[in-house]
């Protein structure tokens, strides 16, 4: 059987598209197929598009429901989950670390000052401590004790365009996520530097995690490396694979 060798570069975009679809569908179950009642595999992109349209509708409804005044419940120190679980898209022994003294946060997009920030600069800003419930998209939850700089204070410091739609986060563990500006300005959205009484340990995202108690766990990036203010929809690691983008609590 002879087969013509296709030009790799020419088919690369198509390959990527197929790959992405295979990943989404890799484990599509019999139950799923039967529930689609005779929907053949080649019909599925239309089902997927319909689900994506509904997910964007769900995003809009969540944005309408969101209030910057409504606060997540805060708990007592005695209610903190011990130990607070490690969670990432990889195992704990694969956690990457950086030298805190050399770490810098890149600042980009619609801001007037794009100079990178050091940890010392963040330590010099007002800190806010809060014990809140982290809710995972899987359904489990755990109560933790984070403190750090309110993101709204930082955004004011770098002269961010607060009318922009999105704030995008990139991490040095190749994770990424993005949030709406209303949530970025919520008083409980903080750039966490500490967990409990100590600097954030590596398992919890050292040196910086964005803690957003009004959003599900996957919208709370750890190991932060850059922040960008933008009007272009940025997506995210899980969001690009099909998780709901707004992911609000």
């Amino acid at each position: 059987m002879s087969r013509a060798r296709p030009d790799r570069a020419a088919i690369a975009p198509e390959l990527r598209r197929i790959e992405r679809r295979l990943m989404l569908k890799g484990s599509l179950s019999l139950g799923g197929l039967s529930m689609l009642s005779g929907c053949a595999l080649d019909d599925e992109p239309s089902v997927e598009r319909a689900l994506a349209v509904m997910s964007r509708f769900t995003d809009r409804m969540q944005a309408l429901l969101f209030s910057r005044q409504r606060l997540a419940r805060e708990f007592d120190a005695s209610q903190i989950t011990q130990p607070f679980p490690f969670n990432a898209y990889y195992d704990e022994d694969e956690v990457r670390t950086v030298d805190p003294a050399r770490w810098r946060l890149e600042v980009g997009g619609l801001v007037s000052d794009r100079r990178p920030w050091s940890l010392a600069q963040f330590r010099a800003l007002p800190q806010k401590r809060q014990i809140t419930r982290h809710i995972c998209v899987e359904g489990w939850s755990a109560i933790g004790d984070w403190s750090g700089v309110p993101l709204s204070i930082f955004l004011h410091h770098v002269g961010a365009d607060l009318r922009a739609k999105y704030v995008n986060f990139r991490c040095f563990d190749d994770y990424s996520t993005s949030i709406d500006m209303a949530t970025a300005l919520h008083p409980q959205t903080i750039m966490a530097l500490d967990y409990g009484d100590h600097a954030l340990p590596s398992a919890y995202g050292a040196p910086m995690k964005v803690r957003i108690p009004t959003k599900l766990g996957y919208k709370n990036p750890k190991y932060l490396s850059s922040i960008e203010v933008t009007n272009r929809f940025p997506g995210g690691y899980w969001e690009d694979q099909g998780y709901n983008w707004f992911g609000g609590s």
Partner: peptide
């Protein structure tokens, strides 16, 4: 798994909210 819809968590959530 045969009794579930969506194939994975993300798919299940997409169907659930739709």
């Amino acid at each position: 798994p045969w009794a579930t819809l969506g194939g994975w968590l993300g798919g299940g959530i997409a169907w659930h909210f739709a």
